[in-house]
Amino acid sequence: MSAEVLLEIDAGVAVVTLNAPDRRNALTPAMAAELIGVFDEVDARAEVGAVVVRGVGRSFCAGGDVQTLTDAGRDPAAGDAYAGMGLIYDSFYRLGQVKAPTIAAVRGSAVGAGMNMLLAADLRIVATDVRLICGFLKRGLHPGGGHFVLLSRLVGREAAAAMALFGEEVDGPTAVRLGLAWETVDDAAVEDRALELAGRVARDPELARLATANFRKETGPPHVSWEIATQFERPSQMWSMRRSAG
């Protein structure tokens, strides 16, 4: 495992750290593959009763790595490009399938695929001055990874349109008001608050995992499943990537 993804487990709480601050934790295929491996390890550790995902530096996650997107834009359907983008999609989809309840501890900014990462968690604690930005259209890209589904299932159609189509940026208090986050606290307190919540449920890992599985089933998938939405969006995103590269 490289230093770009860190895993620490203490008292039943797994802390997964995005640790590529030089590029604001933007996801490359290699980093995404590491994340998937870490989530697999977390699931294999029966003592883990909760997971906190956080980022080092100024951003939680700045989305897909610019060079990765540029390279893929030359021919999004090429084997390596297609597989690389698929790994990035799979990394936050895999977070959404982790057996233990998950919390995103979000400081700085989250953009594009970084938004998908925090949306994939069961709960979000965000900094008061956080910047939550969908950002796809501003880059000339169609959203990917089931972004519309992930966002709208939390904030509803109106707010999802404002953010994903019209580029509205959201801070911590607005995120709480919209239902996009449970709580907003000062930047320095974000991770402590997330760990406090995680520690409560992690005391009984077996129950936590069972309750989380049923919680996700009972609160229901959206009208269009996340998996289907990812595939529905992908051809449009590939088209937009190729257009941008041209």
Rank of each mutant, 00 (worst) to 15 (best):
Asp71Cys: 02
Asp192Thr: 12
Ser109Lys: 11
Gln237Ala: 12
Leu180Pro: 07
Gly179Cys: 05
Ile228Ala: 15
Met241Ser: 12
Thr70Asn: 08
Glu8Asp: 15
Glu169Asn: 09
Leu7Gln: 02
Ala72Met: 04
Ala105Cys: 08
Pro221Ser: 10
Asp192Gln: 15
Pro101Asp: 12
Glu158Ala: 15
Glu183Cys: 10
Arg54Ser: 10
Asn214Tyr: 11
Ala11Lys: 12
Leu178Val: 08
Arg94Pro: 03
Pro21Ile: 14
Ser152Thr: 15
Gly84Ser: 07
Val38Ile: 13
Thr128His: 13
Ser2Phe: 00
Met163Gln: 06
Gly140Phe: 09
Arg193His: 07
Val48Thr: 08
Ala159Gly: 01
Gly49Lys: 01
Ala188Leu: 07
Phe215Met: 08
Ala72Phe: 02
Arg54Gly: 03
Gly114Val: 06
His142Val: 09
Ser240Cys: 09
Lys217Tyr: 05
His142Met: 06
Met115Asp: 06
Met163Arg: 02
Pro235Gln: 06
Gly199Thr: 11
Pro205Met: 01
Ala175His: 05
Ala164Ile: 10
Gly12Asp: 07
Val15Ala: 12
Leu151Gln: 08
Tyr89Phe: 11
Leu6Tyr: 00
Val201Ser: 03
His223Asn: 09
Ala198Pro: 01
Thr28Ile: 01
Gly112Thr: 10
Tyr93Cys: 10
Arg24Asn: 14
Leu210Pro: 00
Ala120Gln: 01
Ala72Trp: 03
Thr174Cys: 09
Leu195Ala: 09
Glu168Arg: 11
Ser240Arg: 04
Asp43Pro: 02
Val13Gly: 04
Gly112Asn: 15
Phe215Asn: 07
Leu132Tyr: 10
Gly37Cys: 09
Ala127Thr: 07
Ser244Phe: 07
Glu196Asp: 14
Phe39Val: 12
Val42Ala: 02
Asp65Thr: 07
Ala194Phe: 06
Glu196Arg: 14
Tyr93Asn: 13
Val201Leu: 05
Val111Leu: 13
Leu165Tyr: 13
Gly84His: 03
Gly179Lys: 02
Pro205Val: 04
Ala14Lys: 10
Ala14Gln: 06
Asp75Trp: 08
Asp65Tyr: 05
Glu34Gln: 12
Asp65Val: 00
Arg242Tyr: 12
